[in-house]
Design a protein around this nucleic acid. Structure first.
Lengths: 345, 345
DNA sequence: TTGTAGGCGTTATCAT
DNA sequence: ATGATAACGCCTACAA
């Protein structure tokens, strides 16, 4: 009786079953060319000994760890946690684990986190968005780690992707407001530095306005960090403009929540006095008063598809370089014609 | 020029620096008794070769993988994603990675996920709550994996914990409503099966009511899955009761959101016609109209403390068996005296 | 303080 | 189809 009852090894299983360690390994890995009889003997031995394979030894010998890495800016944003949630669920079906790292929107930290994950031996990785440092790409290349980006739809030979167009729906939102008769706009944007999604959305807003011959002065675009309170503060800033905007486009739903809250505080009626839009379609956006007009980001779908595609890439299968999902505009109650609007000059 | 330019190994670094592999290993692991000179030589060699240690080999040889596992019911619930977010951030400071697995509130699936994580070689694990299958405990014991539970405050020699009391604040919420003059209550609860937190909260509600000599009939407790829509449906069910409750206690904020939405739809004024409470204090709860009376679950704090404590346990340090954080009742705008209430008989 | 060498538990390449 | 056995890359007694 050893003082720490040595764990049972593959070798013990082999002895118990009266076969070679190679055969046990084959059974474990469902390798072809294994006789029914041998398989049964081995499986019986495994059961009777309660054998559990050692993942680290297996990883060293096989050069794959059975886990992928996901690098996300933060899990505090529900769109990302929803994506990660569905990603993990799907990976489980492939018997693949998930290693998470967050980088607080710092691309430098993203590189560092990726480095440690690669060191850890991940079989593949998924990144958010299209903005990354060159060092990131170099790490993937040098260590030959299969990777994917998601949440954007840029065409780029360096970055295979699964996502959706962030600019077009943003443009549609702005066009919708223009069609309703709005002429004076305000924008609340997330910081665009290192965040291509925020940038694309802002660009979409701008494009629609320019096409309509409308001006969007710099002081009509307020940039704030993610957060309801931040959205409320940005809203207050926009409301100090004279003349006031009649519509406010927000870079995401949470900023829109903040804007709606501040509007209510200030006694500004949505959508009668002012229209507001979001982007993401968080679960509660449907259940507000009024319900938020926004764009539905397909979080869960992205997660599933990333799992399917990354696993395929790891296997060496061919996969589409770029997959674009639909991000649909959802018209609800926060957008309406500008009631108290004067006709443009 | 090999066709796959073999990666540089620790051995290569040793040769380059003109020292033994053991010395390189020592430098890598910040072992004591290493001369300044040797360290510099080795570090120079590491830089010049761009050496990156192999995590899998290190894991096999050292018997630790540099990652812990977190088993959570789902990441779709913001309280959990917030906790995981802070957990991961803190773990990074200890140079420790995070492996995530979700189990959709199925304790059987929890066991299975734990098994694969342990097989993966995790250095430690954290579980949510106090409800677990015996097999879970056995896995920890058998594989000698340090572990922690969180989000509850049960005293149990088997389960070291970091969390907060779920029952007491729930009781306080109910007491507060009783003090305001409410006598007829409804409860919207999450499924309590395998969920000690939901059970504790419900028990807290019950206890306060019983102490006050009030009745809570079975049909005044509606159990629904997590979700705004689910909360709304439960609310509708409670509103069909005659006489109607004047206060509704919800098992979490999201259910409360649903209830508030349904109330607004039905033209029931909160808090004048009806009081509503939640539990969790999600970011938006403060920014609703009216703002939600609820209990603040210290998500981020739990995450940080779990990281600190689990890492200490892995090192073999002594840590408190049970750490109880404060979960404070936050009185806001959804609770008020029952305006249209008759005096109790 | 530094070097030598034997594991760590599998997988995978050969034979047979 | 099955069996020997050499990797896999690093850590760590133990020796010097």
């Amino acid at each position: 009786m050893n003082r720490d009852a040595k764990r049972t090894l593959l070798q013990d299983v082999a002895r118990e079953a009266g076969v070679s360690t190679a055969s046990v390994s084959r059974v474990l890995n469902r390798a072809p060319h294994v006789s029914e009889r041998l398989r049964n003997r081995v499986e019986a031995a495994i059961d009777s000994l309660g054998y559990v394979p050692d993942g680290t030894a297996r990883a060293l010998a096989s050069r794959r760890i059975g886990a992928i890495g996901a690098l996300v800016p933060t899990l505090d944003n529900p769109v990302f946690s929803a994506m990660i949630d569905s990603l993990e669920q799907r990976l489980k079906q492939y018997d693949c684990r998930l290693l998470i790292a967050t980088y607080r929107y710092s691309l430098d930290e993203e590189v560092e986190s990726l480095r440690t994950l690669i060191q850890q031996g991940i079989d593949g990785a998924v990144l958010i968005g299209h903005d990354h440092l060159p060092a990131t790409l170099e790490l993937f290349r040098r260590h030959e780690v299969p990777y994917l980006t998601c949440w954007h739809s840029e065409e780029d030979p360096d970055w295979p992707s699964i996502g959706f167009d962030n600019a077009a729906p943003a443009r549609h939102l702005a066009e919708h407001l223009i069609d309703l008769g709005h002429r004076r706009f305000g924008v609340i944007s997330a910081p665009v530095d290192g965040n291509d999604r925020a940038r694309a959305r802002l660009a979409g807003f701008r494009q629609a306005l320019e096409t309509a011959g409308l001006d969007l002065a710099d002081d009509h675009v307020v940039t704030v960090e993610y957060g309801i309170e931040e959205g409320a503060a940005a809203f207050a800033e926009l409301m100090r403009l004279m003349p006031r905007p009649t519509a406010i486009l927000c870079g995401n739903d949470v900023l829109a929540f903040g804007a709606m809250f501040a509007a209510a505080q200030a006694g500004i009626a949505i959508p009668d006095d002012l229209s507001i839009t979001g982007f993401d379609d968080l679960p509660q956006s449907r259940f507000m008063h009024p319900a938020l007009t926004t764009v539905a980001a397909p979080s869960a779908e992205v997660g599933r598809l990333v799992a399917d595609t990354l696993v395929a890439r790891i296997r060496g299968d061919q996969t589409p370089h770029r997959q674009v999902l639909e991000a649909r505009v959802v018209l609800r109650g926060t957008t309406a014609p500008p009631l108290h609007e004067m006709e443009p000059a």
